[in-house]
Design a protein around this nucleic acid. Structure first.
Lengths: 379, 379
DNA sequence: CTGAAAGCGCTTACAG
DNA sequence: CTGAAAGCGCTTACAG
């Protein structure tokens, strides 16, 4: 197994020039659509190119111009709905401008993100769209910027990073939904989310920090932003949240979320939640699995808010309130920002916060303590 | 808005060489890890590179070696589960080998696919992973091959294309599932799938072609392969399928699928199906929407087979039989094949057909004519 | 093991 | 408007 040699002797600008009887500089001007050329020469060169089946080598052009017309994308995990949808938006915008998009996954892991950015920079991408892991330092992103590589942040924002961002109003959407639950009479609303890393310690410390007003929503991870909205809604209604109902699932997994919800529903009736806020898609899936495994029904036994664009809502009994994120639009906007920066836009950095859409399917449901439920047959 | 100038004067091999007091050739050998170099020189060069913050320019290397360590992916639509999952597998394998992957979407449209391939070739990708639209000609793929660009096909196979492929055993999985329905006593099994383009004309003509044995399952589109399995299962059980129950939805849309299923369930009771085979994820979603909008239940009113990896199965009452495709593995395999070809593997072309997994949730359900159902409130 | 020279396929000033 | 020459940042033979 010998390593494949260089690619077939592809036809270059030199051969086109020879056949057209012009210099390579002239052929280049016609083929690359830069500089001047007369109609006659243009026809001759184009014809020669057609006859030879000339295909420009963007590598060579990129080496000279310093622009590759390629952007790099650092997604968390392209197999998740969120990033898949965002990537589609990015790819569409890139393509319309003749750009390619290199996709990498970080799995929300800083080392992998760093590695990915390194690879992308070596490939000389003109810009980067990234969902940063580290919202404080991210020296690799600052280094990319220093290397003239434009950066646009998506979903999350690094503190003081001089780069555009496109995010969702997590806090506002959570506040809205939890507010609706509170208005419907719920006072025991569970909050189940990943809430993995935090700069504030545990939930109690976070609440304390919020109370002192030192929490800047901008620099929080999305799930913490959602918790912030949850807390604000409680504050505004004068309902004091029960800390035991705020669950940090920790692992980003359906199974862990299901177990967390089962635990909540096994609490003493007086302490059991009457409503549940599921912090993201995985949590929603786990919550639904837990609920249906107990033979409970939404919203009769339990009210449910899912922060997730629920494709499966059509199949589920009503009563679910869903937060639908404009993910595709986020991708498009991020790419548009990036391409405009690459094209030379030096205006002030934009931090766009898109509103999420709240979709209620049927009534939100009464605040009635759910039965413990009987595990149903696994089917 | 002036176009950004060339990127910052990044440090090149020349500067590293100067600082280390060696020639650029030597510096290149150390930095690029090719050719010989003494330990002492190696240290000097590496140190100089570190001090200067040298970052290799893969563009320049690619121009010389003719290898970019980049692969191109032409997906149908990255925002669909299928391609998102496949892409994840591809990206993982690529990354492990230091390759990047440029993603493009064809929307199953030949012109877009052609355009995408053209862009990728101009970017000098070393190889291409593609879900081809045109299973017969695909001259652009043959041209790519001719240009020394390796190709691996995924999900679908072009006739006589000298390239590896990784596909799913659509026909076998469909035959298996439909066989189970037939064994359970169903004789009126509806088949709802996109079945858009065909080289055989309508369904009747396809059936005739199958009967004469001129249908090579390899060269069929997946949905037609599934129909083939459906027909074979019927043939083996001696049950004659009712052509009116085989619905070509045409459009690849949930709404169209829902309408198709509503129409089936509005048939005269004697002609109404007792079971339904939904040909893919969109069709499954549409079918479920139709069924639940009529207030019907699976599998009591209607048995259902979904060719789809149903994430939402946890939320739905039991009785659904799902075909789970090993999509992630397909992506991984395709990338592995491609990288081995790029590395010089010249062995015979591989056409791997992966088995799909059949997941039954509860019993398949009785063959009982479903009630017409009453439309339930939209909720 | 190291260095001087040539060159990958293009674009960019600079003359004409 | 066109052409001769230089060069982007590397790697590749080829001498030594």
């Amino acid at each position: 197994m010998t390593v494949a040699k260089k690619r077939a002797d592809s036809v270059t600008i030199v051969q086109v020039a020879t056949r057209a009887g012009v210099s390579t500089a002239t052929a280049g001007r016609v083929l690359g659509r830069y500089g001047y050329s007369s109609d006659e020469i243009r026809d001759r060169v184009n014809q020669a190119a057609d006859e030879l089946g000339y295909r420009p080598n963007r590598l060579a052009r990129g080496l000279i111009t310093g622009r590759t017309q390629t952007i790099g994308v650092v997604a968390g995990d392209i197999s998740s709905d969120f990033y898949a949808s965002a990537m589609r938006g990015i790819a569409d915008v890139a393509r319309a401008d003749g750009f390619g998009a290199i996709l990498t996954n970080s799995d929300e892991n800083l080392d992998l993100e760093r590695e990915a950015v390194q690879l992308l920079l070596e490939k000389q991408v003109d810009g980067l769209i990234v969902s940063p892991c580290d919202l404080v330092e991210s020296p690799h992103l600052r280094a990319a910027l220093a290397a003239q590589c434009r950066v646009v942040q998506i979903d999350r924002v690094v503190q003081d990073l001089p780069a555009d961002s496109v995010t969702v109003d997590n806090r506002g959407a959570a506040k809205d939904c939890v507010g609706r639950l509170l208005s419907a009479g719920h006072t025991r609303i569970a909050f189940v989310a990943e809430l993995e890393s935090s700069d504030f310690g545990d939930v109690a410390q976070f609440i304390a920090a919020v109370a002192t007003g030192i929490v800047g929503p901008q620099t929080l991870y999305p799930s913490w932003q959602r918790l912030l909205g949850y807390l604000e809604a409680h504050r505004d209604s004068g309902v004091r949240p029960d800390l035991d109902l705020i669950v940090r699932v920790g692992a980003y997994s359906v199974g862990a979320a299901k177990q967390a919800v089962l635990d909540l529903l096994a609490l003493h009736p007086a302490r059991r939640p009457t409503a549940l806020f599921a912090g993201d898609g995985k949590m929603s899936t786990g919550a639904m699995a837990a609920i249906s495994s107990l033979g409970l029904t939404v919203p009769d036994d339990l009210s449910l808010v899912c922060f997730d664009d629920l494709d499966w809502m059509g199949f589920v009994g009503g009563g679910i309130t869903a937060v639908v994120q404009p993910v595709h639009q986020m991708g498009r906007m991020a790419a548009e920002f990036l391409l405009s920066r690459i094209a030379g836009d030096e205006s002030e950095f934009r931090h766009v916060v898109l509103a999420a859409q709240i979709a209620e399917r049927g009534s939100i449901g009464p605040a009635r303590t759910p039965a413990r439920g009987r595990p149903t047959e696994p089917r």
